[in-house]
Amino acid sequence: MQRSSRMLRTRDSSPLTRSPAYETPSLTDLQQLLWLRGGSDNHVDQVWPNIYVGDAWAARSKATLQTLKITHILNAADGPYNIDTGAKYYADLQIEYYGIEAFDDPAFDLSVFFYDAANFIRKALNSSGGKVFVHCAMGVSRSATLVLAFLMIHENMTLVDALKTVSTHRNICPNMGFLSQLRDLDIKLNEERKKNKASATTGP
C-alpha cells in the first residue's frame, strides 16, 4: 500500500536539524541514525514522492515497473560486471535510462556523479507524470547514496534530514566511503547556506 505524498514528505524535526547553527555530525553519529530507523526490506519502496529505491529484481521486473508507472530509471550499478540492463532492456517501456558504473566499495568515488544523478532525478520529477526508479544490486548503498545526494542538493535537506527521510521508508546502509562522501557534500552545502544567509542579512 502506497503512503500518501504528505506522509512521504514528513521529516523528523529536532533541535539539531532545525538549528541555524547546524553542523554536520561525525561519521559515527550518522551511522547511529541509520541503525535506529525502521524502513522496509521490499524489492522496491517509495522514499519520496515519485522516487522509488530498489534492487536488481525490481529493475528486471518490467511488470513491476509498469505497475508503478516508472518513467525514468537511474541504475547505480550499470555495466557488464553489475546489473547490465541498459536502455535497450527497457526500449518497449518508453523509459528514460541513465546508468552509472559504480561499485559498492568504500574506496569508489561516487561523489563525482552526485550532481549529474541529482539533476537526472530532478528532470524526471519535473516531467509530466514523472516517476523515477533508482536502483543498484540490493537498493541499500549505491542507489540510496544518490537519492540522499539529490535530497541534499535539490530539496535543500541536511544530510541528517535526508537520512531520516529515506530510512523511514526503506532500510538503507551506504558504505562508510559513501557516507563520508555525503558528509563532505553536507559540509559544503551547509557552508553555502551560511554564506547565502549572511549575504541576505547584510544586503548589497
Rank of each mutant, 00 (worst) to 15 (best):
M1S: 10
Q2T: 04
Q2C: 03
S4L: 09
R6N: 13
L8Y: 09
T10D: 03
T10C: 07
D12R: 05
S14K: 02
S14R: 03
S14Y: 03
L16Y: 02
R18H: 01
S19T: 09
Y22L: 03
E23M: 06
T24M: 06
T24L: 02
P25Q: 03
S26K: 03
S26A: 10
S26F: 05
L30W: 06
Q32F: 03
L33T: 06
L33E: 04
L33Q: 05
R37H: 07
S40C: 14
D41G: 01
N42C: 09
N42E: 13
H43T: 03
D45V: 11
V47L: 04
V53G: 09
D55F: 12
W57L: 12
R60N: 08
S61L: 05
S61A: 12
L65P: 01
L65A: 03
Q66L: 06
T67C: 01
T67E: 08
K69T: 01
I73H: 05
I73Y: 02
L74R: 04
L74H: 08
A76F: 12
A77Q: 15
A77R: 14
D78N: 15
D78F: 13
G79I: 13
P80K: 15
T85G: 02
T85M: 06
A87N: 02
A87G: 03
A87D: 08
K88V: 08
A91P: 00
D92Y: 02
L93K: 05
I95D: 03
E96I: 12
I100G: 04
I100K: 11
D104W: 10
D105R: 15
D105T: 13
D105S: 14
D105N: 15
P106F: 14
P106V: 11
L110W: 13
L110F: 10
L110Q: 06
V112Q: 09
F113A: 12
F113N: 07
L125T: 09
N126T: 08
S127T: 14
G130S: 04
K131V: 09
C136H: 11
G139R: 10
V140I: 15
V140E: 15
S141L: 15
R142Q: 15
S143Q: 11
A144S: 14
A144T: 10
L146S: 06
L148W: 04
M152H: 08
I153M: 13
N156D: 09
T158K: 02
D161F: 00
A162N: 02
A162W: 11
L163C: 05
V166Y: 00
S167K: 10
T168S: 09
T168D: 09
N171W: 04
I172N: 04
L179P: 09
Q181S: 12
L182V: 04
L182D: 06
R183T: 06
D184G: 00
L185E: 01
I187D: 07
K188P: 00
K188A: 07
L189P: 03
N190Q: 12
K195R: 14
N196A: 15
K197G: 01
S199Y: 10
T201D: 08
G203N: 08
